[in-house]
Design a protein around this nucleic acid. Structure first.
Lengths: 334, 334
DNA sequence: GTAGGTGCATAAAACGTTTTATGGTGGCGC
DNA sequence: GCGCCACCATAAAACGTTTTATGCACCTAC
């Protein structure tokens, strides 16, 4: 069972080159005051022997590991890492991995860091990408306390001074959807949002309320925990029409699962979608596409988000050079 | 920049509990001959201080890191890790990560291990999952040489004696698709496959040829490198009809990209799909779903594949207990 | 000739564990 | 009272690096 794992060590190189291990280390890392010739000779020897420093041993001395963590906070609060019909997270993690590969860095998916026992290595990583932190996220406190660099996707709304984040233009997206509703005649427009206090929910809600005020439309807001899924969507529709109130002309559900549940409930009420009531989801998923009729959704383009987030983190880690600004967008899928 | 990274070490626990570091180590790992009371006291102290052994330091002594690698060989040979419209890989890697999280193990995505420089840590991992190895895959040679445990998804067709693999029932899938074609009247049935020598291509081809022989149908096989994408699909159709040959009644394209290209070319030839010629893809992707008309595809259910592969690997690593057999299936999406 | 550099290389400590080999104590049989 | 064993605990070496502090040799200036 125990692997022999006999690698070429720094001692082998030192012996072969006739110098001390110190010299090898300095030569390989371009540090210290070594004669040019020595440096070259050592490097050639290392090359010849196929020497690569053991990252674990380096890591022991607080050197970077070439490994960053990705934390998907909504999945933490969802209580499951099996996101049925939530494409966003698999696409985001895939895209983050790809972006990092280009830079010789690897990615690990990491669960809520505040839960013990933590899986090993999590505190030894070079940095973190935290997707959709909640307000005053304790995970962020932990990272700050440990002085581990990080970038968030979506703001931590409790920390207005924090700048290390990237995000999609949520306000624009929301406005676009709502304008779309209005343009096709909808006058009573409802929004169904989750209960996690992250910027995705809060910024969307704020944009909705601002839009309503601008258009002189009465806001109709329903909240259901993200974890309620389809049932939550159904309940939301029931709440909207409770007490004999009108069925809205349009409903904007932030999550695909809520949208999917809402669609079922509307059909149960014999409401035609989209003829009588329009329905749009704030994030795309298989569930939306396979619903009948298919539910229009916003494609958050997690690939772009990932590229921006990784770039931002690599700048902090000193692994990317020029800060090349990237703009994020999103796109409505009909 | 340099983090202080002052964690609770084994020395802190030893001092606090009034014992030696050896004792702490033995107590935590359940080894050695310690008095029960001592063991309990040490563990309580450790718990109280929030001690968790540094995985890097443990790793130095050849202990497992709690980290496994995932290698997606088709992406290596595709030359890009940005698989446009290839859902399978993002879904698989997401699902593998999820399965591992349940076991307190993390996953890294790793590029072709035979390419230098290797990203750090890759040789220190506990094990690997290798997706769709090619025939006599050099990566497998490397893993065997280093005595690193691994499981493949899809067989290495050059190593019939190797048993550490899981796979979808490719032969069944192929037969189902072909029977479907035949049942709806298709008599001339073509297959478009890739050129990678992996079991996905080879087993599908073998099943196709067996089916043709059984049905007394003349095989029409076209090969195009996976990397040719849409263009390859178009070329494949042109090759099928070259020299004035009949347009097939049905075409089975293994990759979604080839299918997508084939669809375009068929439309260019004014062939109605699916009325005149049926088209099915061997793996599902966004591209298939968004094509007009949408292309039917096999859903390989990477989530199930991932569960099986991870379970298999964990058995090898001694982290899963009972070998609970899992069967894989797949499903046709229309 | 001595003091002070400069240029180059190295010994040894440190990082946080695990493991091997050794030590001490007390009880038991004779 | 001695030898032996069982029981428990520990010191020290080892893992493969990086870094700090030190050393040596030669040169230069006075």
């Amino acid at each position: 069972m125990r692997a022999v794992r006999r690698r070429v060590t720094i001692h082998d190189v030192a012996r072969e080159a006739g110098v001390s291990v110190t010299t090898v280390s300095l030569a390989m890392n371009g540090k210290g005051t070594l004669a040019g010739a020595t440096r070259v000779r050592v490097r050639e020897t290392a090359e010849r022997l196929g020497y690569q420093a053991d990252p674990l041993a380096r890591g022991l001395r607080n050197n970077p590991l070439g490994l960053v963590g990705l934390m998907l906070r909504p999945l933490d609060s969802l209580g499951t890492y099996r996101p049925g019909g939530v494409d966003y997270f698999t696409r985001l993690s895939g895209a983050v991995a790809v972006e990092c590969l280009d830079r010789e860095v690897s990615v690990m998916l990491v669960r809520d860091l505040t839960l013990l026992p933590r899986s090993p290595l999590t505190l030894s990583l070079d940095g973190y990408i935290v997707d959709d932190p909640i307000e005053d996220d304790p995970v962020i406190d932990l990272l700050i306390g440990l002085e581990i660099p990080f970038v968030t996707v979506g703001r931590d709304v409790g920390r207005p001074d924090m700048t290390a984040w990237v995000d999609s233009p949520l306000a624009e997206e929301t406005t676009t959807v709502l304008d779309g509703f209005h343009g096709s005649g909808a006058r009573s427009v409802a929004i169904v949002i989750g209960t996690d206090r992250n910027s995705w929910n809060l910024d969307s809600l704020a944009a909705y309320e601002a839009w309503c005020a601008r258009r002189g439309v009465e806001p109709r807001v329903v909240r259901r925990p993200e974890s309620t899924g389809l049932d939550g969507g159904r309940e939301a529709v029931r709440e909207l029409v409770a007490g004999g109130r009108d069925v809205p002309d349009a409903i904007y559900c932030l999550t695909g699962r809520h949208a999917s549940g809402a669609l079922e409930e509307l059909r149960g009420l014999a409401v035609d979608v989209p003829e009588r009531t329009q329905l749009v989801a704030g994030s795309d998923s298989e569930q939306c596409r396979s619903a009948r009729p298919a539910i229009s959704a916003i494609d958050l383009e997690p690939e772009l988000v990932a590229a921006a987030a990784v770039h931002r983190l690599m700048l902090q880690l000193g692994r990317d050079e020029d800060p090349e600004p990237r703009e994020l967008r999103s796109r409505l899928i009909l």
